[in-house]
């Protein structure tokens, strides 16, 4: 082989590393810009009033997003109530009955659900819950978020249980422990941290969701604790205020954005810590 062609090959090698390295670094730019904006503008508006009061009318300065914080908490709690137990049970089901037809179909459905656009879930829950109740409500918003949480919980449960060695289940069964107790008392506790990670990730996935809430929780400028009334949520508030013409509301929206991103990152961080353990 000629020397020059060897040189070209080496040059290509370095050029390639340069190009992919550059592309990777370029991605940092928008990331830094977004966080710069969030921290400088959002940081200004986060204070005690922001966290404890409800918004003022347009044009007035001050006010906070307490109603949206309550709303998001309530919506996530409602969503978790059904989707956590249902998700874990389904995850156990597909990991335990790997060969049955039904479980294959269920697995496919979980994939479909994961890919379903959130706006479609919004209009479905509108048709299923809001229209029969003829009222936007926290319940319907909870249902929509719950449906979005399901695939994440199911998948992580299935994956976690798949990693638990068969021998552990056998050790319990060999002691004469019934199957259901083996699952509930040995298998699930052993995979607990994995399942918990899934739950935290699913909450962080829905905490920032707006589209499924547009026609369900709908939003509310006032504070409410009722699950039968329209309710605000942080992402809904961001959407409404960001697209409003008022400077004061933009301020609140930046603060709310920083809050929600902080919450999501914290959840992800905790989830990662739980996995490591």
């Amino acid at each position: 082989m000629k020397k020059s062609s060897l040189k070209i090959r080496h040059a290509k090698n370095y050029l390639f590393i340069g190009i992919i390295g550059l592309c990777s670094i370029l991605l940092m730019i928008p990331l830094i810009l977004i966080f710069y904006q969030l921290i400088t503008l959002g940081g200004k508006s986060i204070n005690l009033t922001f966290l404890t009061q409800i918004p003022k009318s347009p044009g007035e300065s001050g006010g906070g997003i307490y109603n949206a914080i309550v709303g998001t908490t309530l919506l996530v709690a409602l969503a978790s109530l059904v989707s956590i137990p249902l998700g874990i049970l389904t995850g156990v089901y597909i990991s335990e009955y790997q060969n049955s037809r039904l479980s294959g179909a269920v697995r496919t459905c979980v994939d479909i659900l994961q890919g379903t656009p959130s706006i479609v879930i919004g209009i479905i829950v509108y048709t299923w819950v809001v229209r029969p109740m003829s009222q936007f409500s926290a319940i319907s918003g909870g249902v929509a978020l719950g449906i979005m949480m399901l695939p994440v919980i199911i998948k992580t449960t299935e994956e976690t249980l798949g990693l638990i060695p068969m021998s552990l289940k056998e050790a319990s069964l060999a002691l004469g422990v019934p199957y259901y107790k083996t699952i509930l008392k040995v298998v699930i506790p052993t995979g607990f941290s994995g399942i918990l990670t899934g739950i935290l990730l699913s909450i962080s996935r829905v905490a920032g969701e707006t589209a499924p809430l547009l026609f369900t929780a709908f939003g509310n400028a006032f504070l409410t604790y009722s699950i039968f009334k329209p309710i605000s949520a942080i992402p809904l508030l961001i959407f409404n205020y960001a697209t409003s013409p008022y400077e004061e509301w933009h301020q609140l929206a930046w603060g709310a954005s920083l809050l929600v991103v902080g919450m999501i990152l914290l959840l992800n961080l905790v989830a990662k810590g739980v996995t490591k353990r």
Binding site: L89, I94, Y97, L102, C109, I112, I124, W128, I183
Partner: peptide
């Protein structure tokens, strides 16, 4: 209890199935 648990497991699988088929049929 054993049987109850096993039907609970399959039932939750069926719920997911019905949910997704329900979405399609509703639309």
């Amino acid at each position: 209890k054993e049987r109850l648990f096993q039907s609970l497991l399959s039932a939750s699988g069926v719920i997911i199935l019905v949910l997704v088929i329900g979405v399609f049929i509703t639309l």
